[in-house]
Nucleic acid binder design. Sequence first.
DNA 1: ACGCATTACATGCAAATGCAAGTTTTGTAA
DNA 2: TTACAAAACTTGCATTTGCATGTAATGCGT
Lengths: 153, 153
Amino acid sequence: MTQISEAQRRRQSSFGFLMQLLARRIDQDMKLRLAEIGIDVKVFSNLMLLSEKDGITQRELGRLLEFPEYFTSRTVDVLVEKGFAERRPDPDSRRSILVYLTPKGRKKAKELPGIISQVNLSYLKPLELEERTQLIKLLHKVADIDQDGDPAL
Amino acid sequence: MTQISEAQRRRQSSFGFLMQLLARRIDQDMKLRLAEIGIDVKVFSNLMLLSEKDGITQRELGRLLEFPEYFTSRTVDVLVEKGFAERRPDPDSRRSILVYLTPKGRKKAKELPGIISQVNLSYLKPLELEERTQLIKLLHKVADIDQDGDPAL
DNA sequence: ACGCATTACATGCAAATGCAAGTTTTGTAA
DNA sequence: TTACAAAACTTGCATTTGCATGTAATGCGT
């Protein structure tokens, strides 16, 4: 058994520390998996959201994903370059732009849930089914997204 | 009540999605808090770890924090520039380097636990005490860091 | 209808990042 | 002991990021 200090125990039990550590691991995994299908993490997020709901403004897209505005702007550039999305003028306002998935983008988006499930499952493996539900519920409560649902495995 | 799609519910309940979202928020908060005392997140992590245990090689430091090697190399550069740490030759091997905190670094590290507690607490606020313990325990299990302890609030 | 703050988005540019390739030192095996 | 692989760091360089700023369109008060 390795000797661990009180300080180490404290750090390793810090909510922030655990979140950062795990998020980095997940991000790394996703990066590898997504590279196989030729996209990166930021394209992935936007593709997922747009497949739920497109025809929204860039601002709305960024707001829903909690990404800064300049970031969304450039990500949409990439989506358009890759032929996954297109910008259309907003009939209600000439200063805003609506983002729509193209058929190609929609097709690509269909590949994503499988990857997500696999990655999620690989992380949740050490937990019992009940614990997984509990964990998602607690994270939800912390994130303050006001709805509940079963974990997406 | 806002209308939400099944797909949206699914995404928002994805372990990976929640982790990324929360980690980004925490990171942003920490960035602001740390800017007040003149350091950034990567310096922060290393300072914390070294305050637990210094006199380790850069490789070991990177391994413990799960940071890539080139990253550690540059972070230690910054730590040294700022006078928080110093590199000393490893008596056992001329190709490795031991990193030690300076008194200044040790002093700076003392400011950190307070900030960590505040940030952690601000996130865990929506949870009951029991739930906080449960959440940390579950995250621990997922992270597979082999020890248990009470949450550092 | 005029001025002016605000919204929505884009971008220039400095700094940070990440990969791959480089250097020096050590282990190992013939 | 020599040669070759691997370890421990470092660095060059292209890409990415992020802040601050710019541009165009809109709402709003008077």
